[in-house]
Design a protein around this nucleic acid. Structure first.
Length: 591
RNA sequence: GCGGGCGUAACUCAGUUGGUAGAGUGCAACCUUGCCAAGGUUGAUGUCGAGGGUUCGAAUCCCUUCGCCCGCUCCA
């Protein structure tokens, strides 16, 4: 579509910049591209690596209570049956033959009414649009024939798009009642259109393990990284001397056969997740050890974990931790939103889930979900694998050993009275309590799960800016700049000799590059005028520029010998700094 | 998957009734240049998304296909 540059949207400008400067390319572009897959170019690779590193550092290295894991993408298919992904990601779906609206084959409610067949439809006016296939629609019991016809016209119009024009202009052809049905599941519950044959609809990408590639060899590319953590929970416990509460963090690729990849890299078929599964004591265990469970209230102190925290405090704690993380890379509360899922939104096993959303140019959408998942996942894997995944808590055991039988009986009664799920039987509760008395439980889990590619996109969108800059001569122009936080900027510093045809300047600049290179990504540029070189770096978000001029060499003003001009990207201000102070200064900004 | 829009240089886009493709920006080289996209000279880059068809001749017309955007749909 031809349109003036001024109407190019912010998102289009970002996509264009990403391509032009080497942040993000379409995958397989020279072969026409492949939908839902994106490659990171030289600068994008640096940006993404920096983001990955900040997460890993904040979530594992800087904490005593989190360890890392790097698991395979392809795992035993049974994992995905235990997790529920095979069932919910592989439904048999049927589509309405008029509207293409999709429903799960096993979720169609039986309906009754008259089946009306039309041999086609047409619009007599200019476009000469026509539908020349037979369609069958259910006229529901009690539906008036005229409102039914109106509904069918609307249905056809919606599906045909602009070509068919207004619904009221559509002329239905060859109307005929062909059947009366009772309790049929062959018509779409909303549209009444006849459904096609059920087809498998699988959101997990498949492959085959082994050379024979038979039905028995099917494996899946993981649709999330979390399950590997649960599957290796026992190994980590047995080999790492970790004690609940503790977490296992992982960064890795995941794959989903999205129906509609969209919004640039936001919804991709291959993407990278950064997930933490943080295992905590069940509230009952906390209560046994400490006599009570700290309840969350507005303004509660979440700065340091406390031994008497229950799941809700831990959940809030991780929301606060993750918020602090986003602030540390430049995403403050002004660009984030929080969506607390309601009881109705929640998956049946989840106790709470908050989405952290970023205000993307195309809409506010999810960066991360922080879910309190109870003991669902480990319990599923214990059941399906037959392996004991309970954790032995010495502290709990010691606390229970100090209780007498009366106290234990009272505890069981309290627990039964406080149960949230009324389907849980007294026997189950008693059995769980007896386990607790022995120090055994399946840990509960808090799961902060973030999308690395979405974060990279948010960072790009947030950093992108077009500033109106007025120079000394009063000339106004647009400066395109990416305001990356120095910590995550792909290039930390640009080094420029003021003039490239003066060998002393060039060799001094090369010395400074050699000085900085071991510590950070440095970009050396000697071409074109100095102003242009600054602007080039602005456009890729380099926070600092260092210029070597004749003062650096000690000419004219000896007091400036071995100082350089340091130019700051956001303010465009310059100051002189001794070369000896350059490295410590830059390191203080990027670490 | 359905409907609509679009696909020409690295980017943003022109391209007349079908006659062998252009601009601006960017990039490279040189000259000039003392600090915010300076000036000058020169230069490189296109299977016109891909495949097929019509035609003496296709960026242009037709068919198929792929990709991107929007809406629907889907969405742990």
């Amino acid at each position: 579509m031809s349109k003036p540059a001024t109407t190019e949207t912010r998102m289009e400008k970002i996509v264009s910049l990403c391509k032009r400067r080497g942040f993000i390319y379409q995958s397989s572009e020279i072969y026409g591209g492949i939908g839902g897959f994106w490659d990171y170019g030289p600068l994008g690779a640096e940006l993404k690596r920096n983001l990955r590193d900040t997460w890993w550092r904040a979530m594992t290295r800087e904490r005593e209570d989190v360890v890392g894991l790097d698991a395979t993408i392809i795992m035993h298919p049974a994992i995905w049956r235990a997790s529920g992904h095979v069932d919910t990601f592989a439904d048999m779906m049927r589509e309405c033959t008029i509207s293409n609206k999709r429903v799960r084959a096993d979720h169609v409610e039986p309906q009754s009414g008259s089946v009306i067949r039309f041999t086609g439809a047409k619009v007599p006016t200019p476009g000469n649009w026509h539908l020349d296939r037979t369609i069958a629609v259910l006229m529901k019991q009690g539906e008036h024939i005229e409102s039914f016809r109106k509904r069918v016209r609307l249905l056809i119009a919606q599906n045909a798009g602009a070509a068919a024009g207004k619904p009221e202009e559509i002329e239905l052809l060859g109307e005929e009642k062909i059947d009366t049905i009772d309790g049929s599941v062959d018509f779409h519950p909303e549209t009444g259109g006849m459904l096609n044959e059920a087809r498998p609809f699988n959101l997990m990408l498949r492959t085959y393990v082994g050379p024979t590639a038979t039905e028995n060899d099917i494996a899946y590319l993981r649709p999330e990284t979390a399950q590997a953590i649960f599957a290796q929970f026992k190994n980590v416990c047995d080999s790492s001397r970790v004690k609940v509460p503790f977490g296992i963090g992982q960064i890795g690729k995941a794959f989903r056969n999205e129906v509609t990849p969209k919004n640039f890299t936001f919804r991709s078929r291959e993407f990278e997740q950064m997930e933490l599964e943080f295992f905590i004591k069940p509230d009952e265990a906390v209560r046994l050890i400490h006599g009570s469970v700290a309840a969350w209230h507005e303004g509660a102190d979440l700065s340091e974990p406390k031994p008497d925290w229950g799941w809700e405090m831990w959940h809030r704690y991780w929301v606060a931790q993750r918020t602090a993380y986003y602030a540390s890379i430049g995403l403050g509360l002004d660009v984030l939103e929080y969506h607390w899922q309601t009881k109705a939104d929640l998956a049946h096993y989840a106790r709470a889930c908050v989405d952290i959303l970023y205000k993307f140019p195309f809409g506010t959408d999810e960066l991360e979900g922080i879910a309190a998942r109870g003991s669902f996942d480990l319990t599923q894997h214990q059941t399906h694998s037959g392996k004991q995944l309970e954790y032995f808590d010495e502290e709990l055991k010691a606390a229970c050993d100090a209780m007498n039988q009366e106290q234990k009986t009272a505890f069981i009664e309290e627990t039964h009275a406080a149960r949230t799920n009324l389907e849980t039987s007294r026997e189950e509760i008693t059995s769980t309590c007896e386990k607790l008395f022995k120090g055994l439980y399946i840990p509960h889990v808090i799961e902060p799960s973030a999308g690395l590619d979405r974060l990279a996109l948010a960072i790009l969108a947030d950093a992108f800016d077009e500033e109106e800059v007025t120079d000394d001569k009063g000339k106004t122009e647009t400066r395109t700049v990416l305001h990356f936080h120095p910590r995550i900027a792909p290039i930390k510093v640009g080094v420029f000799p003021l003039l490239k045809n003066k060998p002393e300047l060039v060799s001094k600049a090369r010395e400074i590059v050699a000085l900085l290179r071991p510590h950070m990504s440095v970009f050396y540029d000697e071409t074109a005028a100095i102003g242009r070189r600054y602007r080039r770096q602005d456009e890729v978000g380099t926070p600092f520029g260092v210029t070597i001029d004749f003062e650096t060499l000690g000419e004219e003003k000896p007091e400036f010998k071995d100082t350089v001009t340091l130019r700051e990207r956001d303010s465009m201000e310059q100051r002189r700094i001794p070369i000896a102070e350059l490295l410590p200064f830059l390191l203080s900004k990027i670490l």
